[in-house]
Amino acid sequence: MTTAFNAFESRRTIVAVRLGFAVLAHCRDAFCEWRIREKLRTRLDGLSERELLDFGIGRGEIDYVSSNRASDPRGAVLPS
């Protein structure tokens, strides 16, 4: 009985496994970003109108600010 080793099939399997891990890592990163946005939205919702005005945002801008953390709601782009 002889065992034939096919290097091409082995490489395809390795690539498929790496792709699977990459997809899982992407899903994990997306979930972590979503949790950060939700925590920020919750904390901003807990502030009073006066405290929000101190930051320069209104109650209606909370969703925008929490979803676009790299940009300023007044139009100025913040450094990353």
Results as ranks from 00 to 15, higher is better:
R18K: 11
T13Q: 10
G20C: 08
E9K: 12
T2K: 15
F31Y: 11
N68I: 02
G60C: 02
G56V: 05
R50Y: 04
K39Y: 00
A76H: 09
L47N: 03
E33N: 04
V77N: 07
F31Q: 10
G46W: 08
R37S: 08
P73Y: 00
S67Q: 14
E9G: 00
A22I: 07
C27N: 08
D45P: 00
S80A: 06
R28L: 13
I14F: 02
D54Y: 01
E49M: 06
D63G: 05
E61W: 08
E51A: 14
R37T: 09
L47D: 03
D54P: 03
I36R: 10
V77A: 11
E49V: 12
D54F: 03
A4V: 15
F5S: 07
E38H: 03
L19W: 02
R59K: 15
I14Q: 12
Y64H: 13
K39H: 03
D29T: 11
D54E: 12
T13L: 10
W34N: 12
L24R: 14
I14W: 00
V23E: 09
F31G: 02
L78I: 15
E38C: 02
D29K: 08
T42M: 08
L47I: 11
E49S: 08
C27M: 14
L53Q: 15
A25V: 05
R28V: 13
R12I: 10
I57M: 07
A22K: 12
R50W: 04
R41Q: 13
L44N: 07
A16F: 06
N68W: 02
S67D: 10
M1W: 05
R28M: 08
G46L: 11
D45A: 03
K39P: 01
H26I: 13
E61A: 12
E9N: 07
T3V: 15
A25D: 02
E61N: 10
E49T: 15
H26A: 12
F55W: 10
L47Q: 12
S10K: 13
V65R: 14
K39F: 00
F21P: 02
C27I: 14
